[in-house]
């Protein structure tokens, strides 16, 4: 775990980039998000943890409107999220998203996966997009697999490609929705290494994860959710050593026992 063994950044808080205010979301009877207030500053790395079903994935997906919200506002760089259409697409181009199940485009090569957005959304020409894509693939260590199809790669490799694909859009913020939960244990590290590097380079990140090691090392702030509400937040140091709420104590007790 060498890459993770560095001191948590105390990155200077910049301007608020993502702001959620009084956000409510229901799935039928289930109150999935309860009155969420959250502000993520430029360059900040926020890790969202909590038991399953606590609404942390929904929160993450609401930020680029893959989930709609019932009430409240979400703003990105001061602009409220558009309802739909072209403006929403433009907004999503500014927000990178990495999914639990990678979701690489199965019919496209690794290179095409990474260049699709720059070419079709940013209007970049093919040669430039490929040059940039190869750089990104090199950065995540997949440069030799560029002509392969996703199904020919391991899970860890696929997830690194997914990160490169998101980065190719030069997003303002990266959302990670349990990026390592679908991976075999031996592949988790290679993905986390890439994420830690990103954090070091100052990327604004919202990461939903169960990887407490990552939260300790890379997070500026830990947000703990339960039953759709933010129960507690603080620095990793505060949260892991001295959780205030019973829910958090209970949760940490359960996961740290193993």
């Amino acid at each position: 775990m060498t890459a993770l063994e560095h001191e948590p950044r105390t990155a200077g808080r910049g301007e608020p980039l993502v702001v959620l205010s009084r956000v409510q979301k229901h799935f039928g009877q289930l109150h999935a998000l309860k009155d969420i207030e959250l502000s993520v500053a430029k360059g900040e790395v926020v890790v969202v943890i909590g038991p399953s079903g606590s609404g942390k994935s929904t929160l993450c997906r609401a930020i680029n409107r893959l989930e709609t919200i019932d009430e409240g506002t979400i703003t990105l760089d001061g602009q409220p999220l558009p309802q739909e259409g072209k403006q929403l697409a433009n907004l999503r181009a500014e927000v990178g998203m990495v999914f639990q199940s990678f979701n690489l485009f199965a019919h496209k090569t690794i290179l095409q996966n990474v260049t699709l957005g720059p070419i079709k959304v940013r209007g970049m020409n093919k040669a430039d997009a490929e040059k940039k894509a190869l750089e990104l693939l090199e950065r995540v260590g997949i440069e030799h697999q560029a002509e392969k199809y996703p199904s020919q790669l391991s899970g860890g490799q696929q997830q690194r490609v997914a990160i490169a694909r998101a980065l190719a859009m030069e997003p303002k913020v990266m959302l990670f929705d349990e990026p390592t939960s679908a991976l075999d244990p031996e592949m988790i590290k290679e993905v986390l290494d890439v994420m830690v590097d990103l954090a070091k380079q100052g990327m604004t990140m919202v990461v939903v994860t169960h990887e407490m090691g990552f939260a300790r090392t890379a997070a500026d702030r830990v947000v703990f959710m339960a039953d759709g509400a933010i129960v507690e937040e603080g620095t990793p140091e505060e949260f892991f050593t001295n959780p205030k709420s019973d829910r958090a104590k209970d949760f940490l007790g359960k996961i740290l026992k193993h």
Binding site: N64, G85, L91, A93, M97, F99, N103, G117, K120, V121
Partner: peptide
């Protein structure tokens, strides 16, 4: 086609037609 494919496409900013 898995729902995730469309979500990933939307997530990189493609409009519905794309």
């Amino acid at each position: 086609v898995g729902l995730g494919q469309a979500e990933a496409a939307r997530a990189i900013g493609l409009p519905f037609s794309g």
